[in-house]
Design a protein around this nucleic acid. Sequence first.
DNA 1: TTTTATAACTTGTATTTACAAGTTGTGTTG
DNA 2: CAACACAACTTGTAAATACAAGTTATAAAA
Lengths: 235, 235
Amino acid sequence: MENLPQYRKLYEVLRKRILTGVYQEGDLLPSENELSAVYEMTRPTVRHALETLVKDGLIFKKQGKGSIVRKPPQNIGILSIAGTASAVGVRYLKTDILQKPTVQTWPEDFPFELSELEQESGCIYMERLRYVEDEPVFYDINHLPNIYLPRIAQRSFENKSLFEILRQNYQIEIIGGEQKLKAVKPTVKIRQLLHLKPGQPVLYMERKLTTNKENFHIYSTIYFNSEKHAIFGTF
Amino acid sequence: MENLPQYRKLYEVLRKRILTGVYQEGDLLPSENELSAVYEMTRPTVRHALETLVKDGLIFKKQGKGSIVRKPPQNIGILSIAGTASAVGVRYLKTDILQKPTVQTWPEDFPFELSELEQESGCIYMERLRYVEDEPVFYDINHLPNIYLPRIAQRSFENKSLFEILRQNYQIEIIGGEQKLKAVKPTVKIRQLLHLKPGQPVLYMERKLTTNKENFHIYSTIYFNSEKHAIFGTF
DNA sequence: TTTTATAACTTGTATTTACAAGTTGTGTTG
DNA sequence: CAACACAACTTGTAAATACAAGTTATAAAA
């Protein structure tokens, strides 16, 4: 974990300090010159780290002023790259594994295009139900190609996010993705899972996440109960 | 318009070539060294331009290979920073101005926080209905603070996007923003405007766009008919 | 006291240079 | 012919440096 590029290390340090509240909303980060002195890297490298924080929506910059910590989003930040857990704060999220990871063939009507390698490898399938303040909010169906993932079916997913496990145990990191959103009428199954009131629509999402491993994408279909919460994103 | 920074000029050139099809999906852009030679700027400057294209989702890069043009999104790309018109392709979008820009006071129940300057200045209000292939798809309600915008109420908005006018006539550019999404049951008015079938839910969005002018934000409330189209975004 | 000018900060843009790391085609060698 | 080595590309990371442009506090001038 220690052979990260320099700008990435600084990014991780600052990110942690913002998320844990060492730097609070409205605070100025140390100036780029200070950071480059303290962490012994040049200003362009410091700026590279700060750019990624801006991209995350954790800070914004103002010429002549400095780098300012932003208000953390109060809503569910699934649009951000970091995934649900870190965005909304782990403290509010509980996860039920409805279907533990199992190896299958890809579904016939899979809504995404697959590469040959992915097609051949078969897929790992899992379903989860995620709660905010003990109310079910997310129901997500995930397909990953069955490569790079030895023994994942045996692994326990209790209290760990899928992204955590991929990063810590398989060195797989999400580097981007694309998604589609719709408002739909829920099926009976979805309505029951998410405790939806009659007539309450549901937010439907299809996501394809790109990782640092070639040909390894994470495909998710997500149903979101938007009655009390909203999907939130910055750009 | 010609006093843009260098990296911005190169960005505009490449962006236009991708959107107009000079470079097509899967094509490799000229290498960073070639671009820096042709456009007489250094590689870091070229890379700055390419980074913004990556952020737009127009290209992706591969170490050792090059910069590759991505498939343009077939869906409505409102999550991208460029606004609706450029993302979906102007050719598919027609716009009706339901309410021409008028100067008002801010609504009592306005869902966003306003700065003092914005509060004092009053707001400019407008409503639009946007079509894709002659079907109404977007209904949006926009509030802008009444600063920096002389004579905007007199201006014609026919066949021009709001963002175009702000950029060309007032040098206002969108540099970021945040948004909230929900799936909701439409009101009667919304159902009629968007030609929604009975029971069809609607995607509801609140957006706050940040611009290069301080204290000037664009606040939009958007209703989106997601029956035939989807909101699309890359990250 | 109020206004203005300035100095000392901040981030923004840009150049130049260097090497690391991944990809691809072209050879040479077995 | 096949496998391997290597050269010539590509992008990724990083240093050291310079000046422009915006902000803010302080000191001088009105």
